[in-house]
């Protein structure tokens, strides 16, 4: 199988442990996944190559894509205006394959801090940023962020002053959201490429801030 090299490496490239998989006892739900996949292949619905290529396409999406979008908005005022007006169009025109996703960008300023949540399930701009972090899907994050966002943000190390308005966005329907963080002070003259390295995944969800200088 073309994808078996993803397993058995101990730690992944990102340094996180892989979930117990190929060498652990077969679970009921894993059995179901294998059965569904094989039935769909036998019935000509899909091919094994399509499954592999879909996994590759999803693996290729990462927060680095969003970081490029943010960095361009920081350095190109026309692009920033286009992004805030229609983020779906702006990211597509930048060359990202976001599929059928409808994207809205919300801007952080010195007076406003935005944070994204999905209380009903786990809607996330996956076609730009890749799959969401585990905490985004937890009961705790989904329950609390709409009621006590400041306490939640503080747990992530983001303490909002009273002078800043917090705007929470619950992705309840067809839109997906990305936060356009405020450009950090002291980054004048930096290239978009260098700026992109300051933009973290959490900064685009609103639970983090961009790094202030390149690590």
């Amino acid at each position: 199988m073309p994808h078996d090299h993803h397993d058995h490496d101990g730690l992944s490239p990102s340094g996180h442990p892989y979930r117990v998989d190929n060498d652990a006892p077969l679970s009921y739900w894993q059995t179901m996944e294998i059965a569904i996949r094989e039935l769909m292949i036998e019935k000509g619905e899909i091919t094994a190559a399509q499954v592999a290529s879909q996994i590759d396409a999803m693996d290729a999406r990462s927060p680095a894509n969003g970081a490029q979008v943010v960095a361009r908005a920081w350095t190109d005022p026309d692009f920033k205006a286009a992004l805030l007006k229609d983020a779906t169009k702006a990211t597509r025109e930048m060359g990202f394959d976001i599929g059928p996703m409808n994207l809205v960008a919300v801007e952080n300023t010195k007076d406003v801090h935005n944070v994204i949540v999905c209380t009903l399930c786990s809607c996330y701009p996956r076609n730009l940023l890749g799959l969401p972090p585990d905490w985004y899907k937890t009961r705790e994050y989904r329950s609390r962020t709409v009621k006590e966002p400041r306490k939640v943000l503080a747990e992530f190390g983001v303490v909002l002053p009273d002078s800043v308005t917090c705007r929470v966005h619950d992705s309840t329907a067809d839109m997906r959201y990305i936060v356009l963080p405020a450009r950090p002070d002291g980054t004048d003259g930096m290239s978009a490429e260098a700026l992109a390295k300051l933009v973290t995944r959490d900064a685009m969800i609103g639970t983090g801030l961009p790094k202030s200088r390149e690590p």
Partner: peptide, 23 residues
């Protein structure tokens, strides 16, 4: 508190994701 443990997706989980998109 929001738990922040993170895991990378297992192969079978990625396949479920792919089956969802393809179906």
């Amino acid at each position: 508190p929001v738990p922040t443990d993170q895991h990378d997706f297992a192969l079978w989980e990625k396949r479920v994701d792919a089956l969802m998109i393809l179906g």
